[in-house]
């Protein structure tokens, strides 16, 4: 493929979005309806929300819960995944249970977690961790099991101690798969987080969007919705950057990282 000048490439990707925003700005300003308030007002509401604080506070609360849940899910997923990846027997024993747990729609657990843990941050962190752990765990297992036989043999021949072997051989080799799992976990985590904030919460971006919808604050609803979308996109970009940085040494195709990316189930 022919490489265009970077400026032209960016323009080639941006012009339609810019055009769409411009058209919407004009159309909603000229013909405002109850449900589609002028886009200018919505953007102003977003700016106000960030300057005066309420939107920023909700967003910080949500992101904090998301990251905490993801961290717990990642630690649990990678360590259990390592164990199951290295032991054929353990893997065979728990595989049916893993399949059932993975297939459980995590959003169905939200009412239970709210009943158990209340309305605060705990049930949100718990549901994100519960949703995040499976893709990371299963991808870690796949990554470890897909380890090249040569690497295993060499590590064994040199009698490299287990701790070192995990840190220097197994984890780096499985890293592309693990990060692909984290990417899936991220989008899943955002999904369940928003549901849990809408189901029962007192704070958070999902709560704030639903609340403004319920009180017929249409401008506020659109503002929150747009912020949610942009945040989701930025999180995806951040994840891509992390993958690129962590895997810059990795040659060849990054297994499975593109194909399953959209999965939220």
């Amino acid at each position: 493929m022919r490489r265009a000048h970077p400026v032209r490439r960016v323009l080639g990707e941006l012009w339609l979005v810019a055009l769409l925003v411009a058209v919407l700005l004009v159309a909603t300003a000229l013909a405002p309806s109850l449900y589609f308030p002028p886009l200018g007002e919505v953007l102003a509401a977003i700016a106000r929300g960030f300057v005066d604080g309420p939107l920023l506070g909700h967003l910080a609360y949500s992101l904090g819960n998301l990251l905490a849940g993801l961290a717990i899910g990642a630690v649990a997923g990678v360590s259990i995944g390592l164990l199951l990846g290295m032991s054929e027997l353990a893997h065979r024993v728990v595989d049916p249970a893993l399949q059932l747990l993975r297939a459980t729609p995590k959003v169905a657990l939200i009412p239970l977690l709210v009943a158990l843990l209340g309305l605060g941050a705990e049930p949100k962190i718990a549901i994100v961790a519960l949703a995040a752990v499976w893709p990371i765990l299963l991808n870690t297992v796949d990554g470890v099991r897909g380890l090249e036989a040569n690497a295993v043999d060499v590590a064994r021949a040199f009698q490299i101690p287990l701790g070192l072997r995990i840190r220097r051989v197994i984890l780096p080799a499985a890293l592309p798969q693990i990060l692909a799992g984290v990417a899936i976990a991220l989008s899943l985590g955002v999904t369940v987080l928003v549901v849990s904030e809408m189901y029962a919460a007192t704070q958070g971006i999902g709560f704030s969007v639903l609340q403004s919808g319920r009180s017929f604050d249409i401008v506020g609803t659109w503002a929150g919705t747009i912020v949610l979308g942009v945040v989701g996109y930025l999180l995806n970009l951040a994840m891509l950057a992390v993958e690129r940085r962590a895997l810059h040494w990795h040659h060849g195709p990054l297994d499975g990282s593109t194909e399953e990316r959209g999965a939220r189930g």
């Binding site: 928003v194 919705t225 979308g229």
Partner: peptide, 8 residues
Amino acid sequence: AMPVFGLL
């Protein structure tokens, strides 16, 4: 990237 439930 839009969390669909955000559209609810």
